[in-house]
């Protein structure tokens, strides 16, 4: 069974057609990079995967759950599908450690000893063990984002969605975050869907690159083909040449 399957998915915001006939299958363990111009629907697409946005028609199956069905319990999907946001969204009223431990405790009922052990291991993984007791407001953007990643990982998800995780960061912090993401991507069991224009990252750990424009998927290639050959779609080619020049 695939991790994520879109079949003829349509999404409207009022009259605005945000996603048009999306067909997409993402296998377990794959790292998929989603690119496209601003307003093309990348955020909308990735947010439908954990039900932050609902779909209007078509079929969307994530981790075996049918998201189009009203009976599906979204909380169950979200336990196994984490999300990392452009603006981090750390819990402002909680320390770093509590940010990581809260959901495992209240959602999974993980006991404190175990919970803290997992959290400290993850802080080590993201290189911020010394920040365990800090409040989010005392961290830099790059540090916040690494904590947000640790917070997602603490739920032991099968899949993590990243919506432009480095685009709100100062350039010198981007690599710290990308390096953590690369570590995760190399774990072959984790499925990752990443909206990013960091083509170095896409080239190094991406399995596939998807190009969207105006709510449609125009290109869906193996990363190798995408970068070494040429995207067959004209707009994708233009877009790629623009972001690589920068």
């Amino acid at each position: 069974m695939s991790m994520i399957e879109f079949h003829n998915v349509e999404k409207y915001y009022g009259k605005f057609h945000a996603l048009t006939d999306i067909n997409l299958t993402i296998e377990k363990g794959e790292t998929v990079v989603l690119i496209g111009p601003s307003g093309s629907g990348k955020s909308t697409l990735i947010r439908t995967i954990n039900g932050l946005e609902s779909i209007n028609s078509g079929q969307l199956v994530v981790n075996g759950f049918d998201l189009a069905s009203k009976k599906t319990n979204m909380n169950k999907i979200r336990r196994e599908v984490g999300m990392v946001f452009q603006h981090f969204n750390l819990y402002n009223n909680k320390s770093v450690l509590e940010n990581i431990m809260l959901a495992p405790r209240v959602v999974l009922g993980r006991k404190d000893d175990e919970n803290k052990k997992v959290a400290m291991e993850l802080l080590d993984l993201v290189g911020l063990a010394d920040k365990a007791e800090s409040m989010p407001s005392m961290l830099s953007g790059g540090q916040k984002q690494r904590i947000a990643i640790a917070r997602s990982l603490a739920m032991h998800p099968k899949c993590i969605l990243f919506d432009e995780p480095t685009s709100a960061l100062d350039p010198e912090m981007i690599d710290d975050v990308l390096n953590v993401m690369k570590k995760i991507a190399k774990d072959s069991s984790m499925t990752m869907v990443v909206v990013t224009h960091e083509m170095g990252f896409a080239r190094e750990v991406g399995d596939r690159v998807i190009f969207m424009d105006e709510g449609q998927i125009l290109e869906d290639d193996q990363a190798k083909e995408f970068f070494d050959g040429q995207p067959s779609n004209e707009r994708a080619r233009q877009f790629l040449s623009k972001i690589i020049k920068h």
């Binding site: 954990n50 932050l52 979204m74 909380n75 979200r78 336990r79 984490g82 999300m83 946001f85 603006h87 969204n89 750390l90 819990y91 402002n92 009223n93 909680k94 809260l102 959901a103 209240v106 959602v107 999974l108 947000a148 917070r151 997602s152 739920m155």
Partner: peptide, 21 residues
Amino acid sequence: GGQMEAARSNGMTYWQAMRYI
């Protein structure tokens, strides 16, 4: 709103997100 979204994405229910965050 990002606080609520983050808590929901973390698996919490609406009421857990309200209560803790």
